[in-house]
Design a protein around this nucleic acid. Structure first.
Lengths: 329, 329
DNA sequence: CTGAAAGCGCTAACAT
DNA sequence: ATGTTAGCGCTTTCAG
């Protein structure tokens, strides 16, 4: 392994000068700089990150904690976060929480010792702030930037980049209602998901805003993935419940609903219209193509990177969603 | 930040003893061990990873290089890799190659300076071994374990964990043929993908094995995602080509094909049967549900972790695939 | 503008 | 069984 000293010797300067040239901090003469750069190139020198980290007191990786990397929302986000981080020379350490608050805690506890630059928390699961809050604040106090993606934690002092949820859901449901699709059912996770609750509130606001009563039997609080959507919708259909549309809390749920409706010989959107949430990659390719609400991972990742770099300090950034109109509604 | 010295002082021993207790290497007396452990707990001590890494000459993260994290194949793999790595106390650094050989090279060049324990390369894109090979060998020579996932690089001395591709495709196509579905078309990436070529060969073997001629116009060499599948299938249908089934090189392609077929008023599987590849998460929930070939990310991740730990040294590990029979074929 | 030197926190010889 | 010590590779005062 070649070190700063090798470079220094070759360039005929001291290791301090090499370091100055490489970090761009401090003044270095024209001639010396050129010689160092040449030596670096000739020796193909790459500074040892661990040594840098030890000396500087922090490494150059950012921890991204996602709810479940297997889900397309998170994997799309991860992709863009990686890109945005790469642009500012930061590496990405990925932690899959698998929806476990326990894993979140463990990871957060380990973070300072790892020398992470920052931590980005991307999960819609409700975070037990009683135990996690102090940890987060501890990290911030230690100079680490912490940002929440998708969940509003700004009231706890954590800069948050979130999507519009409630208003988006409200608009989508209003669109359904205006199209004469009432009654509209709501299929999604309520308990356990901060974001899920927001989406439901948007649904509720649209329904009552249209002068209709909220009907308990048309609100299905279920887990968030395909099978749950299929089962809840099947149950409703089999019970003979009357509804002309379903607003879903996720695209996965919506796909499950689509399958259930079809398996029972009903047509989408003619008999029942369906709207998803999150614009997953396959949504435009199923049939009927899924009408859904947009996501903007690149925008989110950009904000995050700027926050980590200290170029942006807003406590709350809200990204608007638009209705992506396709065949299902 | 609390250090080994703080712990040592508190336990009334030297820092070396603390280190020995924590690493489990070297003999430590019963009494001293207990006191150290107590002190560690009381001070909530976590050894600084960067210092450890610097001293030991290697950190404890593994680099996972994936073709495109947004695709479900890779995100599912990543999830299980994270779990398997976590079990042996290793962290995961994620690099998204985005199908770029250039990024692969850059990342591999940076690897030694980062102190990675190992690198797992998971991409089906053809790797330009002329430039990448030496890099890989350089890493191995430097004591880093390198493993290839999904692509056979064992002939280049890289331990590889791969799926059965050719035989799996052959079986799937044979199943189609035996069901009287001929002629069968092939939709998938051939050029640019090592794995894609293997799958195609399995298709070809099944077709000729059944005594049929390979028909060039029924082999559609396209990019790997949804839209490409839709377009290729649409073109074939619009051209009036005759085929009763399509073997696809990926589930994404298959979903595109399903949509194209349906948009033209033909029925799956009655008019045209479709088989995908890779058993993506939504496959069982679209309608008709997609018949496909299995993947086993947990198995793959397990092998990978064992290889990194040095507990497994086989140069080639082949994971069998099974046909997941659902509605589309 | 440049060099000498200290030291980040840890571990592994080497002593004892 | 335990302590002393050197030093991993880098950056950053501090002098000059």
């Amino acid at each position: 392994m070649t070190t700063v000293l090798d470079v220094a010797r070759r360039a005929g300067v001291s290791s301090a000068t090499v370091s100055r040239v490489l970090s761009g901090k401090g003044n270095v003469g024209e001639e010396a700089r050129r010689r160092v750069l040449d030596a670096v190139r000739e020796l193909d020198f790459q500074p040892n990150r661990m040594a840098q980290g030890l000396r500087r007191g922090r490494g150059n990786a950012v921890g991204l904690l996602v709810g479940d990397i297997e889900q397309n929302v998170y994997s799309a986000l991860t992709k863009h976060v990686q890109t945005a981080l790469g642009e500012i020379g930061l590496d990405l350490m990925l932690y899959n929480l698998d929806h476990s608050a326990e894993r979140l805690r463990t990871m957060l506890e380990a973070a300072p010792a790892m020398g992470l630059r920052g931590v980005a928390l991307a999960t819609t699961d409700i975070i037990p702030m009683a135990t996690i809050g102090p940890l987060l604040r501890g990290l911030q106090a230690g100079g680490m930037s912490v940002v929440s993606i998708g969940q509003r934690l700004h009231k706890d002092g954590i800069p948050s980049i979130v999507y519009e949820e409630r208003a988006a859901a409200r608009r989508a449901v209003a669109y359904l209602l205006e199209g004469g699709r009432s009654p509209v059912a709501y299929l999604g996770r309520l308990t356990g998901s901060a974001v899920g609750t927001d989406r439901y509130r948007g649904y509720a606001a649209a329904v009552t805003g249209a002068g209709q009563a909220l009907r308990r039997e048309l609100v299905w609080d279920v887990a968030y993935r395909f099978a749950a959507g299929y089962e809840a919708t099947s149950r409703a259909l089999d019970a003979g419940l009357d509804f002309r549309a379903i607003q879903c809390g996720s695209d996965e749920l919506a796909l499950g609903a689509l399958a259930a409706i079809r398996d029972r010989g009903r047509a989408v959107p003619d008999d029942i219209a369906v709207i998803g949430f999150g614009n997953l990659d396959w949504g435009g390719h199923v049939r009927p193509a899924l009408t859904t609400l947009s996501v903007h991972p690149a925008t989110v990742a950009g904000h995050m990177a700027r926050m980590l770099a200290g170029d942006e300090t807003k406590l709350l950034t809200v990204i608007p969603r638009t209705l992506v109109r396709r065949g299902s509604a």
